[in-house]
Write a protein that binds this DNA or RNA. Structure first.
Lengths: 224, 224
DNA sequence: AGAATAGTTCGGTCCAGACCGAACCATTCC
DNA sequence: GGAATGGTTCGGTCTGGACCGAACTATTCT
């Protein structure tokens, strides 16, 4: 029939375990080098190089050369969105959870979703801000109220991030199956959280680990 | 690393051209038999049977036996959502559109997205209903207003559909890259449109083809 | 019952592509 | 310059899985 877009091409790119691991690693939002991604995928660097070339040709990732390093990142937030959606399906359909990893609980609690906060804490933030009238609307149509914008500015959160992404956006969570906050505000809040030292990111994971004090300060700041 | 859900398993299921074609065919919302799906995918029935078993085991489709026929449909709307999202990416990244099919313009104009209306007409409907205050909110949080519910009832649109799906829901369109209306209301409106004879569906496609009169009546009824 | 139709299972072929060793290119450091 | 480091390209191996013919099972029709 061959009607509509060719989804098999994209899906098969994601469908290789090695490449999938690389993409999952890039969901951390950090740009990673070929070597790091090779370790992530558990393959030799030559193999990884081949995968990365294919992913780049497929438009899923972007490459940036910096001296002898090649940094890779997801091509755009659309790609991140599809990956997160796939994680949602996989988590739902995963045959009886193939031995949930040791880090799973922490990932469900709070993690980075490309450039913003996901997991229970992300959902809590989203719900809290909406309940308090900082945000209005829902889903794609979500927006900061004037009061909300003032509040964020008072905290010192940077919304300027030179990017085409909308100020606010919601993103579906694979673990909680609920929306959380993306867009420039989502990114600004996550950056702010790290800048304040409220949370740190264990090397090489998507986990966002709050300190006891940090979590308290975070909840107080955003009143959730 | 193996953190988070195993997306490669699902993605590789979708990543085979034959299976992808079958899934795309099932996006029409109709339950199809193994033989029909084999034709759709362009493979022999034995091969299709194998694919269908794998898709079923993977939780992407559901099987219903009826006499000597086996009917297959997408497992749930989540699967449809991921497929539509993948189509969005594929359409965006598709290297210079590998020769858009002859039916492409019609598909972009109006098509079935699992059980509701998508394409330009679907987006127009969504925007129109929101502009007129039949719907309030956006994205996931969209809902019928009381006035809107009355109006739909007056037209005779059935919202009862015994399903767990929400009354209203928005769904991202691969062609227009905009939201359109899903959920029980979306389904009710599409069913109603066919019941009124305003549009028909060419056999074996996702196309929704309005007649001249039908389109006029549709626009008048929903005031778009 | 026998014939026709719809699907599945089995066995075997075949190929795309994942993988790695080795050689090669590019950049940085000393 | 030479050595070290990070990536890519090339050539060859090997396997998963897509595919189909043939045989088999299940259901319906007459």
């Amino acid at each position: 029939m061959k009607d509509g877009p060719d989804i098999a091409r994209i899906a098969s790119l994601i469908g290789d375990p090695g490449r999938a691991n690389m993409l999952a690693a890039l969901m951390s939002g950090k740009a990673l080098t070929a070597g790091e991604l090779a370790r992530e995928a558990g393959v030799r660097v030559q193999t990884a190089s081949g995968h990365l070339t294919r992913l780049e040709e497929g438009g899923l990732i972007a490459r940036e050369r910096q001296g002898r390093h090649h940094y890779f990142r997801l091509a755009d937030t659309d790609v991140a969105g599809v990956l997160e959606a796939l994680m949602g399906l996989a988590a739902a359909k995963g045959q009886l959870r193939t031995r949930t990893g040791p880090r799973d609980p922490e990932l469900r609690r709070a993690r980075v979703c490309y450039n913003h906060l996901a997991g229970e804490v992300g959902v809590m933030l989203y719900d809290g801000l909406r309940a308090r009238g900082v945000l209005t609307g829902e889903g794609e149509g979500i927006a900061l109220t004037d009061a909300g914008r003032a509040e964020m500015a008072a905290l010192g959160i940077d919304l300027s991030a030179a990017s085409r992404s909308p100020e606010c956006k919601s993103c579906l969570d694979w673990s909680a199956r609920r929306s959380h906050l993306a867009g420039r505000l989502g990114r600004g809040i996550l950056d702010f959280t790290f800048a304040q030292g409220w949370a740190m990111r264990p090397e090489g994971t998507r986990i966002v680990r709050f300190s006891g004090i940090g979590e308290g300060a975070f909840r107080k700041a955003f009143n959730v």
